[in-house]
Design a protein around this nucleic acid. Structure first.
Lengths: 160, 160
DNA sequence: ATTTTGCGCCACATAATATTTTGAAATTTC
DNA sequence: GAAATTTCAAAATATTATGTGGCGCAAAAT
């Protein structure tokens, strides 16, 4: 809960962050060459970025198709009530469903947008009917099936 | 372009994939303990998963707030024409904009959904007016500002 | 202007870790 | 049921990360 703490970092740190976002498996030696520093201070900077929470974690990115996940969707969800109790209850239920890989509270028409991933349309339908729709706080839902993904960058643009 | 190639993997591989999605920085020794194998075959399995393309890449996840990115949005975009030429032209323009970190072609009302990240509302507005709106294939847009993100799992549910 | 202080850097030494090799055991195939 | 293939473990080796000491530069103080 230590939100919006703006930790400071310089041009070199920014470069490190760009590189590690694109490729977390780079060796420290190579990273140090790319940023023009020797290995020791390079590693020290990376550690500081980790400790300060700027770097939160490291993840392997898989190919959904190759592990048998053929259907991805975004779902706009409206709740029946917009009070904190309902929202908390909804969140709690959503957290239990592993196929829901993202859940954002948004402005606009709906209240939430979910990203869901499933094996196929049949599995998706079953998931929606038996799990998501069953959450009693849910009023309406609107699904958008992803036909194809043109861009899925893991590199955030770091402001100057 | 070698889509939908279903590579096969067993229960141990699945466990490896789950672990590496959640934590790519685990040492091979620790990974081998977690899955109950010795280091050598463990590493061999990881390499095969990488070579087969099941594991596509590794990325550092940053804290957007701490690098000064305070505004994230989803944007529904409709194009003026739905032919391939227009879509290609749109994609090309979108790829140039680094603040657009995701772009998916979807079914339903709109044609595309984008995920955009910016420093603040002012920067977001400027970005939308000067870059995204300027793309001539764009007909209409509808923004959904993310108030908060409750779930952002990097772990895909791997079907049995 | 000179000293002082502190930070960030490099180079080298050492520790940790990954990777290769070898061979044995289990499983599959014919 | 034997040969071939695959999968594994243990140990040796190579690579990489990490800790230490000292140097140099920049900013602050005198």
């Amino acid at each position: 809960m230590d939100n919006s703490i703006r930790v400071k970092f310089d041009k070199i740190d920014r470069k490190i962050l760009e590189i590690l976002q694109a490729n977390a498996k780079i060796t420290n030696a190579q990273l140090s060459k790319d940023i023009g520093l020797s290995p020791a201070p390079t590693l020290e900077r990376v550690k500081k970025l980790e400790q300060s929470g700027i770097i939160k974690s490291y993840h392997a990115k898989l190919d959904p198709e190759k592990i048998g996940l053929g259907v991805s969707t975004f779902v706009l969800v409206s709740l029946i009530g917009h009070n904190k109790g309902n929202i908390d209850a909804f969140m709690k239920e959503i957290n239990q469903i592993e196929e829901v890989i993202e859940c954002h509270h948004i402005t606009g028409t709906g209240d939430f947008i979910l990203k869901i991933i499933a094996k196929d349309i049949t599995a998706y339908q079953k998931l929606m009917l038996e799990k998501v729709s069953e959450i009693k706080e849910v009023d309406s839902m609107q699904s958008m099936v992803i036909l194809s993904t043109f861009k899925d960058s893991k590199v955030l643009p770091i402001p100057a």
